[in-house]
Amino acid sequence: MSPSMLAIVLSSLVFVVLVSAAPTSLTLKRAFPNHGMNLSQLRAMDMKRHGRILQASVVNFPVYGTADPIAAGLYYTSVHLGSPPREFHVTIDTGSDMSWVNCVSCNGCPQTSNLRIKLNYFDPESSSTSSVIPCSHHKCAICSTNNHCSFKVQYEDGGETSGYIISDLMHVADISEGLVAPNSSVPLVFGCSNMRTGRLTSYESALDGIFGFGKDDTSLISQLYSQGKAPRVFSHCLKGDTSGGGILVIGEVVEPNMSYTPLIPKHVLSIFDIFPPISLNFANHASMVLRSQDYLIHSPTFYGGLWCLGFHKTQDITILGDIILKDKIIVYDLASQQIGWTNYNCSLPVNVSAPSSGKGRNEKGGASLCDRPEKLTMVILAFITHMILILI
């Protein structure tokens, strides 16, 4: 017998010996010994284990809607509230903190929506886990006559809603990075809206409510964080194509090319802090730098008080009016066919170049407009006629 054949025979004999010596059964041991615990104790231990998994998980919300103003013009998500759970479509609002949905007997709530979704109304009486927050709650700011903690929210677009505050379960539909059951739920304090006014009464882009993702304690993200259910960070990615949708997760999306800027506390911000200076660039490298207060116009009667951009673009030219030209000296040099400007406190007198004859010049080589009322009138008339420029 050749050496190679002998090696094959010996290997086969070793395999037969190992197989014949193997046990005919396997012993299974519990990874989590119950030590004689009953079913209720096992369930409690399982819920505690699920809570630890949920704490390290990333909560994923569905995203609907598109940027197309004809199809939707906004993005929104859906949440499941109450017991048994009911689905509600809500706006994703990163600029507010209060979360609320329509409730039964709502005054001003739209009945239909052009988004082709069925509008629902939350009924606290039909939910076995619902409870009304009383006025005695330590965070209650507004109290109604029936001892219910109330809320009222006004939005920048003129919409307003009010109602009372309740607590119920929010059912998390999808959690990744953990083996949590799809029906996991967390307690949530939110508003039960029974009044809508302004733009919130329109059927256009109407939804069941608004969920606030702001920084205050009442926001959705802050409530989940305070319970140890999710991190205090969320991310979204909204699809810009016609299909719409996107991603909304409570967790930080890790990408190498992220750019960050600090969040400034809103109590130190004014409208003029938010908008940056704008530079209007002309020929000969001349620039007119406009502060935000130079081009923002406050309209207190339009949509509850909006700030508008003070620019008027026509087909061929751009008109710069009095609002933009304030707090500047504007020189219209028709003889040299040029125009000049500089920032100036217009409550102070100015020096004006005198005619070649030298009449009217003061000791410093200029004539004060305070001494020459006819010149002042001429400049004011020129200022009121507006300044029409072709931007280059």
Rank of each mutant, 00 (worst) to 15 (best):
residue 139 K to Y: 08
residue 55 Q to F: 02
residue 86 R to F: 04
residue 103 C to Q: 08
residue 47 M to Y: 06
residue 87 E to Y: 01
residue 137 H to Y: 15
residue 65 G to F: 06
residue 50 H to Y: 08
residue 146 N to I: 11
residue 71 A to T: 13
residue 82 G to I: 07
residue 145 T to R: 08
residue 132 V to I: 09
residue 91 T to K: 12
residue 133 I to E: 01
residue 107 N to F: 09
residue 101 V to A: 15
residue 71 A to Y: 03
residue 147 N to E: 06
residue 125 E to P: 02
residue 146 N to V: 03
residue 74 L to M: 15
residue 49 R to G: 08
residue 123 D to H: 02
residue 119 L to K: 10
residue 105 S to Q: 06
residue 55 Q to W: 04
residue 122 F to C: 02
residue 69 P to M: 07
residue 56 A to S: 14
residue 103 C to D: 01
residue 146 N to L: 10
residue 125 E to Q: 13
residue 69 P to I: 05
residue 73 G to Q: 01
residue 111 Q to N: 07
residue 62 P to A: 02
residue 133 I to M: 12
residue 108 G to W: 04
residue 118 K to H: 12
residue 46 D to E: 15
residue 78 S to V: 13
residue 104 V to E: 10
residue 107 N to E: 08
residue 92 I to D: 00
residue 58 V to Q: 13
residue 122 F to E: 01
residue 146 N to E: 15
residue 144 S to C: 03
residue 84 P to N: 09
residue 150 S to M: 13
residue 72 A to F: 00
residue 56 A to P: 00
residue 145 T to W: 11
residue 58 V to I: 14
residue 135 C to K: 11
residue 92 I to Y: 02
residue 135 C to S: 08
residue 103 C to N: 04
residue 134 P to K: 11
residue 113 S to L: 02
residue 65 G to K: 07
residue 138 H to D: 07
residue 77 T to N: 10
residue 57 S to I: 00
residue 88 F to K: 07
residue 117 I to W: 15
residue 95 G to P: 01
residue 65 G to N: 08
residue 50 H to T: 12
residue 63 V to R: 01
residue 136 S to W: 05
residue 47 M to F: 03
residue 51 G to T: 05
residue 115 L to Q: 02
residue 91 T to D: 12
residue 79 V to F: 07
residue 57 S to V: 00
residue 120 N to H: 07
residue 107 N to Y: 05
residue 140 C to H: 05
residue 99 S to P: 10
residue 122 F to N: 11
residue 81 L to R: 01
residue 145 T to G: 04
residue 112 T to H: 09
residue 87 E to N: 11
residue 109 C to R: 03
residue 51 G to W: 02
residue 134 P to W: 08
residue 103 C to R: 04
residue 59 V to W: 12
residue 56 A to I: 00
residue 109 C to G: 11
residue 99 S to R: 08
residue 51 G to P: 00
residue 61 F to H: 12
residue 115 L to S: 14
residue 149 C to S: 05
residue 103 C to S: 10
residue 123 D to C: 06
residue 119 L to S: 11
residue 48 K to M: 14
residue 99 S to K: 09
residue 99 S to G: 15
residue 110 P to Y: 11
residue 134 P to R: 03
residue 78 S to E: 10
residue 63 V to K: 03
residue 62 P to N: 09
residue 71 A to I: 14
residue 55 Q to I: 01
residue 132 V to E: 02
residue 132 V to H: 04
residue 77 T to R: 02
residue 121 Y to V: 00
residue 135 C to Q: 03
residue 129 T to E: 09
residue 72 A to Q: 03
residue 118 K to G: 12
residue 127 S to E: 12
residue 144 S to F: 02
residue 86 R to H: 15
residue 68 D to G: 13
residue 57 S to R: 00
residue 109 C to E: 03
residue 86 R to N: 14
residue 98 M to A: 09
residue 79 V to K: 02
residue 149 C to Q: 06
residue 106 C to R: 13
residue 60 N to M: 11
residue 55 Q to L: 00
residue 146 N to D: 14
residue 125 E to S: 13
residue 112 T to D: 06
residue 101 V to Y: 05
residue 132 V to F: 06
residue 104 V to W: 10
residue 100 W to T: 10
residue 121 Y to H: 00
